[in-house]
């Protein structure tokens, strides 16, 4: 598994995880509720993202490459100008629906800004800290505990799967395309057995060290108020931009 975290020294990296999660979430909400016609607002948001990326020392190329995760939805957006109704404009000999163009823009802009904000969060916050952050934002502990175990064991399981695949290949079994479905599924079944049995062994190991149903609580101290103020700059600036754009329009 290849996490997105970029270990760097930066002011953004140093912020506590909970303030970053909150800031990105609020920023995303502002973006999503912005009317699609407020083009200046979206330009402003992009500027904010660029600013944070610069502060966090996250390269633009890195961000753009990973933002392609959202590509399927951009493809969905592409059809809208052709299928849309109402007023139409001609562009390079194509008749495009104005409403459809706005619809496509809406999906493209909000989707991309959302992905970029999430990427910045993941790039500047380790998995461990993200869970701690959720914990401090009062996410139910069952969920954060399940996440903790999950993230601990994903790589172990992927190694297991890789070893089983190599064993299969080294016995000369290498079907392609649909024929491999059976071998693949047998591998998945074996992986489930290993995961489940490992879960049971982990539980025994926990009991052996005095586990009685309560995990030790997250370590470290909560974010100081100053960090909340600093990180709120992102959503507050975004909201300011949104209001300004609405007033200007």
């Amino acid at each position: 598994m290849e996490p997105l975290y970029l270990a760097r020294e930066s002011r953004v990296h140093r912020l506590s995880p909970e303030v970053k999660i909150a800031a990105v979430l609020l920023f995303t909400i502002v973006v999503v509720v912005t009317p699609r016609e407020d083009l200046t607002a979206f330009a402003g948001y992009t500027l904010l993202i660029a600013l944070v990326a610069g502060l966090a020392r996250v390269p633009a190329g890195w961000l753009l490459k990973r933002a392609t995760i959202e590509l399927p939805f951009v493809l969905l957006a592409v059809v809208l100008p052709f299928t849309g109704h109402g007023e139409r404009v001609d562009w390079l000999g194509l008749s495009l629906s104005v409403d459809g163009l706005y619809g496509a823009w809406n999906i493209f802009a909000k989707g991309t800004l959302g992905v970029l904000a999430s990427l910045l969060l993941a790039a500047t916050t380790s998995m461990r800290d993200l869970i701690l952050g959720l914990d401090r934002l009062r996410c139910p502990t069952v969920i954060t505990q399940i996440m903790t175990f999950m993230l601990r064991y994903i790589d172990v399981l992927i190694d297991d799967a890789r070893r089983m695949r190599i064993a299969r290949l080294s016995r000369g079994y290498d079907p392609r395309f649909l024929w491999q479905v059976k071998a693949f599924a047998v591998g998945v079944g074996a992986l489930f057995l290993r995961s489940y049995e490992r879960g049971e062994r982990v539980y025994l190991a926990m009991l052996s060290r005095g586990y009685s149903g309560r995990m030790p609580s997250g370590s470290g101290s909560k974010a100081p108020a100053a960090e909340w103020v600093v990180s709120s700059a992102l959503p507050v600036a975004a909201a300011g931009i949104a209001v300004a754009a609405a007033v200007l329009a």
Binding site: F149, M150, Y153, I154, G187, G199, Y203
Partner: peptide, 23 residues
Amino acid sequence: DRLAPMAGLVAAFIFAVQMLNFQ
């Protein structure tokens, strides 16, 4: 009280399986 470790391993399994691409 087995929930956290067991569900964690099952979630890891689902995640791992989603990462295993096949042609």
